[in-house]
Lab assay of single mutants.
Amino acid sequence: TTYYDVLGVKPNATQEELKKAYRKLALKYHPDKNPNEGEKFKQISQAYEVLSDAKKRELYDKGGE
């Protein structure tokens, strides 16, 4: 599973699309609303952290993490 899959976006997604997808999923899986989905929330946050940063995203796209 790639970070793009976690957020449900395509690899060519814009920053705005990433932000929108992250917010939607973060609300859905937030531990306050969904106590059993803490791990999913962490995955979503990690994916967004990497993909929202241009340098980290470039490194990730080249095969790094």
Results as ranks from 00 to 15, higher is better:
25 L>A: 05
40 K>V: 09
54 A>E: 11
28 K>W: 07
63 G>D: 12
41 F>H: 04
55 K>W: 09
37 E>L: 09
34 N>P: 05
56 K>Y: 06
25 L>H: 03
9 V>C: 08
44 I>G: 01
6 V>F: 06
35 P>W: 06
44 I>F: 03
55 K>Q: 11
9 V>D: 00
20 K>G: 07
15 Q>M: 14
60 Y>G: 02
60 Y>R: 02
19 K>Q: 12
46 Q>E: 15
51 L>F: 01
45 S>Q: 15
14 T>R: 05
3 Y>E: 01
16 E>C: 09
1 T>E: 11
34 N>G: 08
38 G>C: 13
41 F>V: 03
9 V>Q: 02
54 A>H: 09
39 E>Y: 08
64 G>N: 14
54 A>T: 11
26 A>V: 14
30 H>N: 11
55 K>G: 10
47 A>S: 03
25 L>V: 03
29 Y>C: 04
30 H>G: 13
43 Q>C: 11
57 R>S: 02
2 T>R: 05
4 Y>E: 01
46 Q>P: 01
18 L>I: 15
48 Y>T: 00
64 G>M: 15
39 E>T: 07
1 T>S: 12
13 A>K: 00
58 E>N: 07
56 K>G: 06
1 T>P: 14
37 E>T: 12
21 A>W: 02
12 N>P: 02
42 K>D: 07
7 L>Y: 00
13 A>P: 02
35 P>C: 07
49 E>M: 10
17 E>Y: 03
54 A>C: 10
26 A>P: 00
31 P>R: 06
10 K>M: 11
50 V>S: 04
16 E>P: 05
16 E>Q: 10
61 D>I: 02
63 G>M: 15
42 K>E: 08
12 N>F: 07
38 G>Q: 13
65 E>G: 13
47 A>W: 01
14 T>I: 03
6 V>N: 03
9 V>A: 03
38 G>R: 14
44 I>D: 00
19 K>A: 14
6 V>W: 10
7 L>V: 01
36 N>G: 11
57 R>K: 06
53 D>G: 03
15 Q>F: 15
7 L>C: 01
47 A>Y: 03
44 I>L: 07
65 E>Q: 12
39 E>G: 09
53 D>V: 04
12 N>G: 08
48 Y>P: 00
65 E>C: 14
59 L>H: 07
44 I>K: 01
47 A>L: 02
62 K>G: 07
23 R>P: 00
32 D>E: 10
4 Y>F: 02
37 E>Q: 11
38 G>M: 15
58 E>H: 08
41 F>N: 02
45 S>R: 15
47 A>K: 01
60 Y>W: 03
19 K>D: 15
63 G>Y: 15
22 Y>T: 00
44 I>M: 04
61 D>R: 02
31 P>D: 06
25 L>G: 02
64 G>P: 11
42 K>R: 15
57 R>N: 03
30 H>M: 07
1 T>R: 13
7 L>K: 00
23 R>E: 15
46 Q>T: 10
60 Y>H: 04
44 I>C: 03
28 K>L: 15
60 Y>C: 03
45 S>L: 15
16 E>H: 09
38 G>K: 13
43 Q>F: 08
62 K>N: 11
61 D>T: 03
38 G>A: 15
14 T>W: 01
26 A>Q: 09
34 N>L: 06
33 K>A: 12
36 N>F: 10
17 E>C: 05
38 G>Y: 15
22 Y>A: 02
35 P>H: 07
38 G>L: 15
62 K>H: 11
21 A>H: 04
52 S>Y: 06
39 E>W: 13
5 D>Q: 08
3 Y>A: 04
58 E>Q: 09
47 A>H: 01
52 S>W: 04
24 K>G: 08
34 N>W: 07
44 I>E: 01
20 K>T: 12
54 A>S: 10
42 K>N: 07
53 D>Q: 04
55 K>N: 11
19 K>S: 14
6 V>A: 06
3 Y>K: 02
2 T>Q: 06
38 G>D: 08
59 L>E: 15
17 E>W: 04
27 L>F: 11
63 G>L: 14
12 N>R: 05
56 K>P: 02
52 S>E: 03
32 D>Y: 07
26 A>E: 09
30 H>F: 06
34 N>H: 10
40 K>W: 11
51 L>N: 00
54 A>F: 09
3 Y>W: 08
14 T>F: 02
40 K>A: 09
23 R>I: 15
52 S>R: 09
53 D>L: 03
38 G>W: 15
47 A>Q: 01
50 V>R: 03
47 A>R: 00
39 E>K: 08
37 E>Y: 15
65 E>N: 13
28 K>M: 14
7 L>E: 00
42 K>F: 09
65 E>Y: 15
48 Y>I: 04
35 P>G: 09
61 D>A: 03
8 G>K: 05
24 K>N: 11
27 L>Q: 13
23 R>N: 15
22 Y>R: 01
49 E>G: 07
41 F>A: 03
4 Y>D: 00
41 F>L: 07
15 Q>G: 08
10 K>D: 09
28 K>S: 08
16 E>A: 11
63 G>P: 06
46 Q>Y: 10
40 K>M: 13
49 E>K: 11
48 Y>V: 01
61 D>E: 03
40 K>N: 07
63 G>S: 12
24 K>D: 11
27 L>K: 11
15 Q>H: 09
63 G>Q: 14
27 L>G: 08
20 K>S: 14
55 K>Y: 13
63 G>A: 13
42 K>T: 08
50 V>L: 06
53 D>H: 05
27 L>W: 12
49 E>P: 01
56 K>D: 05
22 Y>F: 13
38 G>S: 15
30 H>S: 11
12 N>E: 09
22 Y>S: 00
13 A>T: 05
9 V>H: 00
60 Y>I: 04
42 K>I: 09
52 S>G: 10
62 K>Y: 07
21 A>C: 04
20 K>L: 14
46 Q>R: 10
17 E>T: 05
62 K>D: 06
3 Y>D: 01
65 E>F: 14
14 T>Q: 03
58 E>A: 10
35 P>I: 06
10 K>S: 12
5 D>P: 00
9 V>T: 04
65 E>D: 12
52 S>I: 10
20 K>M: 15
24 K>Y: 12
20 K>W: 12
55 K>P: 05
58 E>F: 10
52 S>T: 06
58 E>Y: 09
20 K>Y: 11
45 S>Y: 12
1 T>C: 15
15 Q>C: 11
46 Q>K: 14
51 L>T: 01
18 L>Q: 00
40 K>Q: 07
42 K>A: 12
52 S>M: 10
9 V>M: 04
54 A>L: 11
39 E>C: 10
17 E>R: 04
3 Y>R: 01
18 L>E: 00
14 T>N: 06
16 E>I: 08
8 G>M: 06
46 Q>L: 14
25 L>K: 05
36 N>Y: 11
52 S>F: 06
65 E>A: 14
9 V>L: 07
2 T>N: 13
65 E>R: 07
20 K>C: 12
45 S>K: 15
14 T>K: 04
29 Y>H: 05
36 N>K: 10
33 K>M: 14
25 L>D: 00
10 K>I: 04
34 N>F: 08
27 L>P: 03
12 N>H: 08
17 E>N: 04
43 Q>L: 14
16 E>W: 10
63 G>K: 10
15 Q>W: 11
11 P>N: 08
32 D>R: 10
9 V>P: 00
61 D>N: 04
5 D>W: 06
11 P>R: 10
7 L>P: 00
31 P>H: 07
24 K>Q: 12
46 Q>W: 10
36 N>C: 12
30 H>A: 09
31 P>K: 06
35 P>Q: 07
55 K>T: 13
8 G>P: 00
60 Y>T: 03
3 Y>L: 13
13 A>V: 10
64 G>I: 15
26 A>F: 14
57 R>L: 03
13 A>N: 01
63 G>N: 13
32 D>C: 14
2 T>Y: 11
24 K>V: 12
27 L>D: 14
49 E>Y: 13
16 E>K: 11
8 G>V: 03
7 L>H: 00
56 K>W: 07
12 N>V: 05
4 Y>I: 01
53 D>R: 04
29 Y>Q: 02
23 R>W: 15
16 E>N: 08
51 L>D: 00
33 K>R: 14
38 G>T: 14
18 L>M: 06
10 K>F: 08
64 G>D: 12
47 A>T: 01
36 N>A: 13
5 D>T: 08
62 K>P: 04
9 V>S: 02
17 E>F: 03
39 E>H: 10
19 K>M: 14
65 E>W: 13
46 Q>H: 12
59 L>M: 13
6 V>I: 15
59 L>F: 09
2 T>V: 05
41 F>G: 02
21 A>F: 02
16 E>V: 08
36 N>S: 11
47 A>N: 00
17 E>I: 05
18 L>D: 00
56 K>L: 14
36 N>L: 13
30 H>Y: 05
25 L>Y: 04
18 L>N: 00
56 K>I: 05
8 G>T: 03
32 D>H: 10
9 V>R: 01
9 V>F: 00
38 G>H: 14
5 D>M: 08
4 Y>L: 02
31 P>V: 06
42 K>V: 07
4 Y>S: 01
41 F>S: 02
48 Y>D: 01
40 K>E: 05
50 V>T: 10
52 S>Q: 07
17 E>H: 04
46 Q>V: 13
8 G>W: 03
59 L>S: 09
